[in-house]
Amino acid sequence: MTKYLLKRFLYSIFIVVFGSLLVYSVLRLLPTSYFEKIALERAQAPGAPSYAEILSSLNKIYGMDTDIVSGFIKWGKNAIQGDFGVSWEYSIPVVEKFKQVIWYSIFLNIVTLLIQTFISIPLGVLAARKQYSKTDYFVTFVSIVCISMPTFFLATILKYIFSVKLGWFDLFGIVGRYYEQLDIWGKILDMAKHLVLPVTTLAMLNIGGLMRFTRTNMLEVLNADYIRTARAKGLSENVVINKHAFRNTMIPLVTYFSYLIPNMFTGSFITETLFQIPGIGYISYYALIHGDIPFAMFYSVLIIILTQVSLLVADFMYAVVDPRVRID
């Protein structure tokens, strides 16, 4: 157990270090940089020093005048102490910005997770129980539609129907125009209303896959010999499905859910951007396209670390639901 953890830990460190070095190198090598843009702007001001002068002084101030490796080492030294620097784009410490926006993403993802789980798992089980029935075909059809739909397309359709045509929801944003004037319940309701379309989009994107995943696993489990044994005992079909089959179907599902952990903290890039939900996905998107290296580094390292954690959690969860699996 300790040996396993240690091995896993060293392995993770290795991945985190080289993963962030890779990201850092790519960011440094981007053909356009944040400072080039700034320098270009400042150089146009009357009486300003030349573009090249401004650029080199900016680079010096922000430590971008070094080569990639020493720049990375410098960044790493600070990062280990929890100092990720000040975001260039947002002009406040990176961690500060993260704390401000992360809750939107967590909330969005938890609600989505609950909704998609409560819709897709029962439907997947039902489809498996009634394989090749009308219900099954319907579920399969819906899954395939959901799986094949690109986010931007789905979001646009939903916006068109529910915002433009029906006018039920705002097109984007997390709060309405009169948010500040509302009482506490009004504020909650207002935010909830703004989350309906993003949650629907995200849920629909995942429901298809999760439904098929559940159905496939359930079908496999239902063909297992121990299910026949359970039936041979005289157990009712509901007990057979909900106790004997479901526990076994859970085994692969647990991994699936463990992989969703990083999602929770990394936000949903596309959906948040499309709906302009100021979560971590949306904020990072702008940091990235503007070449905000401190923020981009923080975000990437976060993803890498969380992915490692989720792998560990998945292993643990496997051992929890499947007695055949031992962690060692």
Partner: peptide, 28 residues
């Protein structure tokens, strides 16, 4: 019908299968 059969199975008539390796539920 199925629901009556459940009272007979395992109680009045029971069955031992060919594959002992897979006939017991692995999680219980």
């Amino acid at each position: 019908p199925g629901n009556m059969m459940e009272k007979i199975r395992g109680n009045e008539v029971s069955m031992i299968f060919q594959e002992p390796m897979t006939s017991l539920n692995p999680v219980f």
